[in-house]
């Protein structure tokens, strides 16, 4: 395939992915928006006013970046996991497997498709959050940079989950038992200063903590952790997951018999 043909193949996958989540928007776009609005109302407005400040910020301004990040994470992940597993299940993944499209293009196509949903929902949620909290942006490059990398990383993770999945249960196990705890314990709702020394150390092995904090830093200029560290961690994880995912596709694991 020439580079131009590869580009066409890539854009075809991305376009199809976007088309898919737009077509089924009541399942893909609406629920995260409703969830996030509920979070804002409950944690931000109702409870938040009683909590007062967290790490020197009004509570609603503290949780808003975390909630945005949470929706980017879950939407990037679930888009790729359900789209890729769905095409295994209906076997239309074979349309790609019989084509000359190289595996890395297939991988990037699905991942960028997942990022489009993750970032799209993130954007909607950000706009909505402006209704509840007013915040300015401390550093645009850091904010955009970390949100892009987070979305990339969780899209990759979603694809790996989908490759291994044999049934629909398998695609909800990781989100329920890994992703949700990681985000809830990842400093979305509280500053890790609140935890004792031991538990804040334990929190340091949670990648979501780095992303949420880097993002909050980009917006509000405060962070529990070192920003350079955060970027390096997320970058490293993404590279690792990229090669794991590519290797799975190259071997044809659970795709070719």
């Amino acid at each position: 395939m020439t580079n131009q043909e590869k580009w066409i193949a890539f854009m075809t996958i991305v376009r199809r992915e976007i088309h898919r989540f737009l077509r089924i928007w009541p399942q893909t776009l609406l629920p995260p928006v409703i969830t996030i609005v509920l979070y804002f109302v409950i944690f931000g407005t109702l409870i938040g006013s009683r909590i007062g400040e967290m790490a020197g910020l009004p509570y609603i301004q503290f949780v808003a970046p975390g909630l945005i990040m949470m929706s980017v994470i879950t939407n990037s992940y679930s888009n790729v996991v359900s789209s890729f597993f769905g095409s295994k299940f209906q076997r239309n993944i074979e349309e790609l497997l019989v084509s000359p499209t190289p595996n890395w293009i297939i991988l990037l196509g699905f991942v960028v498709g997942g990022m489009c949903r993750g970032l799209g929902v993130g954007l909607i949620v950000t706009v909505l959050s402006l209704y509840f909290a007013d915040f300015s942006i401390h550093s645009l490059p850091i904010t955009v940079g970390i949100v892009l990398m987070t979305s990339l990383m969780f899209s990759l993770a979603g694809l790996i989950n989908a490759v291994f999945a044999r049934n629909f249960d398998d695609i909800s196990i990781i989100p329920t038992f890994v992703l949700t705890p990681l985000t809830y314990l990842g400093g979305v709702f509280y500053s890790i200063e609140l935890l004792g020394e031991f538990w804040s150390k334990v929190s340091m092995i949670n990648p979501v903590l780095y992303m949420v904090n880097a993002f909050r830093y980009g917006i509000a200029g405060i962070s529990d952790i070192n920003i350079v560290w955060a970027f390096s961690m997320v970058g490293l994880f993404s590279v690792l997951l990229f090669f794991v995912a590519l290797n799975l596709l190259e071997k044809g694991s659970r795709l070719r018999s």
Partner: peptide, 10 residues
């Protein structure tokens, strides 16, 4: 159209 796209056809 998608299948054509996977073969690099405009």
């Amino acid at each position: 159209i998608n299948q054509a796209g996977y073969f690099g056809i405009p």
